[in-house]
Design a protein around this nucleic acid. Structure first.
Lengths: 157, 157
DNA sequence: TAAACTAGGACAAGTTTAGTCCTAATTGAC
DNA sequence: GTCAATTAGGACTAAACTTGTCCTAGTTTA
């Protein structure tokens, strides 16, 4: 539960490897060797990351991948979004609003707020910090406020 | 991603229904009607919750289920644990420690700490709050501290 | 033109999740 | 003591998601 997929985990490892040498263009193959992740998987992930604009790609000979922006400006939330789509703790949160038990379910709202709180906390963590490159402390005023609000919300909007 | 399972969501709805009338013993069937969740599913979930000691059961005629303790003393984390087992954001966190890319992976540790931070925040939210019965504000000093620590951890232990 | 790359998507196997059903065991009422 | 209501436990199935592989096409440089 509340588990990020293995692929997402891999992606952060790959991004961390890119973050270590931001000036260098690295091929999927080389990244696979560095990280010990199977090459086709690395390839696939890099494609996804490219689509999400987290890395830039150069085709052709001497091509490869680079971080699209500094590691300090890539949040954990962005990585998760890129690979797993927008984060929704429950199905209701996804949008449609009809899960069959709408009326009886006053629980949904609170989950969604908790959801948001967690999301914001992930948003405050940068790739640089995940990779252990940057040790800058993050300020997290948002997080505390959000979770507090989430947990005290009532059914009456 | 970071999604709680539908069953867990159902479980909180069921627990919320029980929390509304803590003095009453309610049957699985009645809870199914109230919540509009399919009866066999409700049954199954209640069994799990009973095993986790979140509800008490009475067998036989006029039997049914009740909360094992006040809703204020049941945390969201406890509900998640009961249904999905101990929370692990990544596989590495689960224990074995060999995911094939150990050496190259300095990312794991930070995930695990974030994990813990989220977990603690869930621990601070009670069923009463989820159900909208109790509007008590929670103090969350732990959460802020935890996430801050998690995000600034370095590879060097 | 050939070689080294990425881009995109189809596909298959494995695992997890969701939900159903069946057969005990227990209790209270008549 | 028998019957009906109810939980206990687990087997089973179908659907969904995850993970990983592979193939073909497009791009760039030497």
């Amino acid at each position: 539960m509340l588990r990020i997929s293995k692929l997402t985990d891999y992606a952060t490892v790959i991004l961390a490897a890119l973050a270590e040498q931001p000036e260098r263009v690295q091929t999927a193959t080389s990244l696979a060797e560095q990280t010990r992740i199977a090459a086709p998987t690395v390839s696939k992930l890099l494609k996804q990351l490219q689509r999400a604009k987290l890395v830039t790609s150069t085709r052709g000979l001497h091509g490869g991948y680079q971080l699209a922006r500094p590691a300090t400006q890539i949040s954990a939330a962005a990585i998760l979004d890129a690979l797993e789509g927008p984060l929704t703790l429950t199905d209701c949160a996804a949008g449609q609003g009809h899960c069959g038990i709408e009326e009886t379910c006053r629980v949904g709202r609170v989950w969604q707020r908790l959801n948001l709180a967690i999301r914001r906390s992930l948003y405050e963590v940068s790739l640089a910090q995940l990779a252990g490159i940057d040790s800058t402390q993050v300020r997290l005023p948002t997080l505390e406020r959000e979770v507090k609000a989430a947990s005290s919300v009532r059914s009456s909007s």
